Measured scan of single mutants.
Amino acid sequence: HSLRVHINGKDFEVHNADEHVIRALEELIRRGADADELKEFLERWKG
């Protein structure tokens, strides 16, 4: 899957995101994670 996440006016393109990554991202958003947390998660995932 390809996923586009809009954080703090920046678009993050997440390519080849598997279900696990997408679910983790949705969980963060549901918990009310702020932009920094989401960005950190995506950067860690992209490795």
Rank of each mutant, 00 (worst) to 15 (best):
H1F: 03
H1P: 13
H1D: 13
S2Q: 13
S2E: 10
S2M: 15
S2F: 15
R4Q: 14
R4N: 14
R4G: 09
R4M: 11
R4E: 12
R4S: 15
V5I: 14
V5F: 13
V5Q: 01
H6G: 02
N8P: 00
N8K: 05
G9K: 01
G9I: 01
G9T: 00
G9W: 01
K10E: 13
K10M: 09
K10C: 02
K10S: 06
D11I: 15
D11S: 11
F12Y: 14
E13F: 12
E13T: 09
E13P: 02
E13Q: 06
V14D: 00
V14Y: 05
N16F: 10
N16Y: 07
N16D: 10
N16P: 03
N16Q: 06
N16S: 08
A17S: 05
A17P: 07
A17I: 10
A17E: 08
D18L: 05
D18Q: 08
D18C: 05
E19P: 08
E19N: 08
E19T: 09
E19C: 09
E19F: 06
E19A: 11
H20F: 14
H20T: 13
H20A: 12
V21Y: 02
V21W: 04
I22G: 02
I22P: 00
I22Y: 07
I22N: 01
R23D: 04
A24G: 08
A24C: 04
A24Y: 08
L25R: 00
L25M: 05
L25Y: 04
L25Q: 00
E27H: 10
E27Y: 13
L28D: 00
L28F: 09
L28W: 10
L28V: 03
L28E: 04
I29L: 12
I29G: 02
I29W: 11
I29Y: 09
R30K: 11
R30E: 06
R30L: 12
R30N: 09
R31K: 12
R31F: 09
R31L: 11
R31E: 08
G32P: 02
G32Q: 06
A33K: 05
A33Y: 10
D34M: 07
D34F: 06
D34Y: 05
D34G: 11
A35D: 08
D36P: 05
D36W: 12
D36H: 09
E37R: 07
K39P: 01
K39D: 09
E40P: 02
E40W: 12
F41I: 05
L42F: 12
E43M: 15
E43Q: 14
E43H: 13
R44V: 12
R44P: 03
R44K: 13
W45T: 03
W45F: 09
W45R: 03
K46H: 10
K46T: 13
K46N: 14
K46I: 14
K46A: 14
K46V: 15
G47Y: 13
G47H: 12
